[in-house]
C-alpha cells in the first residue's frame, strides 16, 4: 500500500528488472536449485538419485581430507592472486594513467593476454614451464641460476603457484584497465593541491590515489576473488589438479568428482560448500574494507 503511494516509480523499476530476472532465474537459479536437491542424494548420473539426507555433507566434513586440502589450495591460490594481481594492476594503472603514446602502447600490450582464450594461455604456459625444454628453465640455466630452475608444474610444492602466476599474467591487464577508468575519474585538482603542498609521489598515493580509488578496488577485489575461484580452465588444461591434487582448486575437484568419478550428488554437496566459502570470504572482505576505510 505504502509502496504505491510514496514510490509510484517502483512499478516501472520492476518492469525494468523483469527481463533480467527472468533469464537469470530460469537458466541459472533453477539449475542451481536442482543442484541443491542433488546434494542430498547419491547419484551416479545414470539411475535415479537416491536420497541420503545430509550424508554427503557430514562425510565431507568428517571423512574427506582431500576436500580440505583442496579448500586450502583454493584459499591460498585466491589470496595470492587477489593480492598480487590487484597490487600489480593498481601500480601499472598509476604508471599508465596519463595518455601518451608510450602509455597507450603499454596499456594495449598489457591488455593483450586478456584477449587470448584461456586454453591458448594454458598451452603457452605449459610449454614455458616445461622443466627440461621450457623457456623459463632454459633462460634461468643460461644465467647460471640452476637452483631456480624448478620442476614448476611437476612438483607438489610449486604447481599451484605456477598456475597462480599464469592467472596473474592472464588477468592483470584487464584489472589495470578497470583501475585506469577509476583513476581517471579522480579530479586532477586533488593532485595539484597535493603537489603544491610538496607531497611526494608516495604521499600523493597514500592521501589521494588510494582513498579515491577504493570503490574501484572493492570492485576489482570482489571480481578477482570470484574469478580466482573459477580458474577452472587453466588448472584443467595445465595439470588437471596434479601432482597429487597439489594444484586442485574447488572448481576442478567438483568437475572431476562429478564427471570423472560420476559422483554427482557428492559434487553437488561440494559445490554448495564452495558457495558458502565464497560468500563468507566476500562478506569478510567487504567488512574489512568498510571498517578500515569507511567505504
Amino acid at each position: 500500500m505504502q509502496k504505491k503511494k510514496s514510490r509510484p516509480d517502483h512499478r516501472v523499476y520492476y518492469w525494468m528488472i523483469l527481463p533480467a530476472i527472468f533469464i537469470y532465474a530460469a537458466l541459472y537459479l533453477y539449475p542451481a536449485i536442482s543442484n541443491l536437491r542433488y546434494s542430498l542424494t547419491r547419484w551416479d548420473g545414470i539411475g535415479t538419485p537416491k536420497f541420503v539426507g545430509l550424508h554427503n555433507f557430514t562425510n565431507m566434513l568428517t571423512n574427506d581430507d582431500l576436500f580440505f586440502k583442496v579448500l586450502g589450495n583454493n584459499v591460498r591460490f585466491s589470496l595470492l592472486v587477489v593480492t598480487l594481481q590487484t597490487a600489480f594492476a593498481l601500480f601499472f594503472a598509476i604508471f599508465l594513467v596519463k595518455n601518451t603514446r608510450t602509455t597507450i602502447f603499454l596499456r594495449t600490450l598489457y591488455f593483450f593476454p586478456t584477449i587470448l582464450s584461456s586454453v591458448s594461455v594454458a598451452m603457452i604456459w605449459l610449454f614455458l614451464y616445461d622443466p627440461n625444454f621450457g623457456a623459463i628453465n632454459v633462460g634461468l640455466k643460461k644465467f647460471g641460476l640452476n637452483s631456480f630452475a624448478l620442476n614448476w608444474l611437476g612438483s607438489e610444492n610449486s604447481a599451484l603457484y605456477a598456475i597462480a602466476f599464469t592467472q596473474i599474467w592472464f588477468h592483470t591487464g584487464q584489472m589495470m584497465v578497470i583501475y585506469i577508468a577509476g583513476l581517471q575519474q579522480i579530479p586532477l585538482e586533488l593532485y595539484e593541491a597535493a603537489e603544491v603542498d610538496g607531497a611526494s609521489k608516495w604521499q600523493q598515493f597514500k592521501s589521494v590515489t588510494w582513498p579515491m580509488a577504493l570503490p574501484t578496488t572493492a570492485v576489482v577485489i570482489a571480481y578477482t576473488t570470484i574469478q580466482s575461484f573459477r580458474a577452472f580452465d587453466l588448472v584443467y588444461a595445465m595439470t588437471q589438479g596434479g601432482p597429487n591434487n597439489s594444484s586442485s582448486i574447488l572448481a576442478t575437484l567438483i568437475y572431476l568428482t562429478a564427471f570423472n568419478e560420476f559422483r554427482l550428488g557428492y559434487a553437488a554437496a561440494q559445490s554448495i560448500l564452495m558457495v558458502i566459502t565464497i560468500v563468507i570470504l566476500t562478506l569478510v572482505q567487504r567488512r574489512v574494507i568498510r571498517t578500515k576505510y569507511g567505504v
Binding site: Y129, D130, P131, N132, N151, W152, L153, G154, S155, P243
Partner: peptide, 9 residues
C-alpha cells in the same frame, strides 16, 4: 626416467 620426470608432459 627423464630428469624432472613428474613435470614431463
Amino acid at each position: 626416467f627423464p630428469e624432472n620426470a613428474t613435470g614431463v608432459t
